[in-house]
Nucleic acid binder design. Structure first.
Length: 506
DNA sequence: TTAGGGTTAG
């Protein structure tokens, strides 16, 4: 095993004998270098098993290095076993374990270890808070770490700890607190700026994200591919094609490699901004098409109504050796839904567990219900909702209610509304829909009853709105909005478009 | 040994 891993000057013959070897680690580079060369966990464990037989390698420093290696392979159980062998773990060893827990969604274990570290009288260093805050991601009890950082004068102005703190607030959606921290930071770099932009984007505050990106550019801060992924996501969701195109040109100019995540973001941006042809073009240029890239492309085709093409790409990705994931099935099922492919959708849903070992979740069932609803199969959709293996949520009942509005099906609409009044009691859209269904069937008493509920529960009706970007400015319109300076021309054009559509549909 | 990224059902 070690022979395979050792290369050049570092050969197996350099292994220390198991006894009487008390030279310091630094004089024995082979073992650590051999471990570094391991590309798979199994290799690493085998190499470790060989080396650990020597007394030298039971030193805390060495074991800490082992933990670091194993944490890199995400085997936290093995890492913990090694950690527990250390009689006097150093701050480095604690840091490494906390980092491992934090990056593997085992935050509470990381926090627990930090407490143990302090009980042992160890002082945190500049790495501890970033790792600990990562472990606290999404956990409100992590707010206590904020005061720890503030009190620790060594790090209360230190960029890594503060950026981690900012990201921690973003992790449970408190972008307001994150922004306060950001504004007060003595130093900011590309990571800090990207972190706050990503925070806004995750909260769907796309305009704020773009605004900060503009500020970042004006401040002359370096921009990298991580920044651009968030900016592309914001422009995609705003339909801000010009910003997205600027990013694309920047990528080309700076010769930034289209890694799978950046490539997927670019495809998604073009697809959401209406340019499926450009999305396809970008798709063709990405050298390593990971599952993200395929998902973005299939999702783009789905939203443009190219169901059969989406399914072809789904098959092609498998021929290319890429395993579909949960998201792939969501976008493929959504392709079936937008193209009326009922049987295909059913077949794909059934194949998830059977052929791919992926258990369908509520989103997959949601897509299938949508397939049935859009095909007008409302009774079948209702049957799926009440018989699926998990508790239906508001999205499922909302899908059915929407479909009932299109078909004026009062009976099923009432069944859906009954649940929605519990699940989403303040969603004005649902009340509007049921009221419209009653109106369409001339049930005026029921229309009045719904209006009274809206009034009694003080539910305000939230008007729909749409966004469009022209010449780098995003314009927002509400229903019946007349505030825009070009309102008259816009409505004039809208009427013309409506006439054209009517002519087409005749 | 540090901090930041995407896609996903009404």
């Amino acid at each position: 095993m070690l022979e395979i891993l050792a290369s050049g000057n570092h050969h197996i013959t350099h292994l220390p004998s198991p006894s009487n070897d008390s030279k310091p680690i630094s004089n024995k580079p082979n073992h650590l270098q051999i471990l570094k060369k391991c590309t798979h966990l199994i290799q690493f464990k085998q190499a470790h098993a060989q080396i650990i037989k020597t007394p030298l390698h039971q030193s805390d420093t060495y074991l800490s290095k082992i933990i670091e290696g194993v944490v890199g392979f995400s085997d936290l159980i093995y890492a913990r076993q090694v950690f527990d062998q250390i009689t006097e773990p150093s701050t480095f060893a604690f840091n490494t374990m906390i980092r491992g827990y934090g990056t593997n969604d085992l935050g509470p274990e990381g926090i627990d270890l930090y407490i143990r570290m302090r009980h042992r009288g160890l002082i945190p260093d500049n790495f501890t808070y970033p790792f600990l805050l990562k472990a606290c991601s999404g956990l409100k009890q992590g707010k206590g770490v904020h005061s720890l950082v503030v009190k620790d004068k060594r790090f209360s102005s230190e960029i890594h700890s503060l950026t981690s703190l900012m990201t921690f607030y973003c992790s449970f959606g408190d972008v307001g607190s994150a922004r306060l921290l950001f504004d007060r930071m003595p130093q900011r770099n590309v990571v800090t700026w990207t972190g706050i932009i990503a925070g806004y984007v995750k909260q769907k505050r796309y305009k704020d994200g773009i605004e900060l990106f503009n500020q970042m550019k004006n401040n002359g801060v370096e921009i990298n591919e991580l920044t651009l992924v968030s900016v592309l996501s914001a422009s995609a969701n705003l339909g801000a094609l010009e910003i997205g195109q600027w990013v694309h040109e920047y990528i080309d100019q700076k010769r930034i490699l289209l890694n799978p995540k950046l490539g997927a973001a670019l495809i998604d941006m073009y697809a959401k901004c209406g340019h499926i042809d450009k999305a396809y073009q970008v798709f063709g240029t990405i050298p390593c098409k990971g599952v993200y890239v395929w998902n973005a492309m299939i999702g783009g085709l789905a939203m443009h109504g190219y169901g059969n093409e989406a399914i072809e790409r789904f098959q092609e990705m498998q021929q290319n050796g890429i395993m579909p994931d949960r998201v792939t099935f969501i976008v493929v099922l959504s392709a079936c839904s937008h193209s009326g492919l009922v049987e295909k959708g059913k077949e794909i849903l059934l194949s998830m567990r059977k052929d791919f070992g992926i258990e369908p979740n509520i989103k997959h069932y949601g897509c299938f219900v949508d397939i049935l609803c859009r095909a007008g199969l409302l009774n079948e959709a209702y049957e799926v909702i009440i018989n699926m293996p998990m508790e239906p949520n508001a999205v499922l009942w909302g899908t059915l209610l929407n479909a009932c509005a299109a078909a004026a099906n009062v009976e099923l609409a009432e069944a859906a509304m009954q649940r929605l009044m519990v699940l989403e009691p303040f969603n004005d859209g649902n009340y509007v829909l049921i009221s419209n269904i009653y109106a369409a069937t001339e049930r005026w008493n029921d229309v009045g009853r719904v209006r009274k509920i809206l009034k009694d529960r003080k539910i305000s009706r939230n008007p729909g709105h749409s966004l469009i970007q022209v010449d780098n400015v995003v314009h927002e319109f509400m229903v019946g909005d007349g505030r825009h300076p070009c309102s008259e021309q816009i409505y004039g054009m809208l009427e013309k478009v409506a006439i054209i559509i009517k002519e087409w549909s005749l």
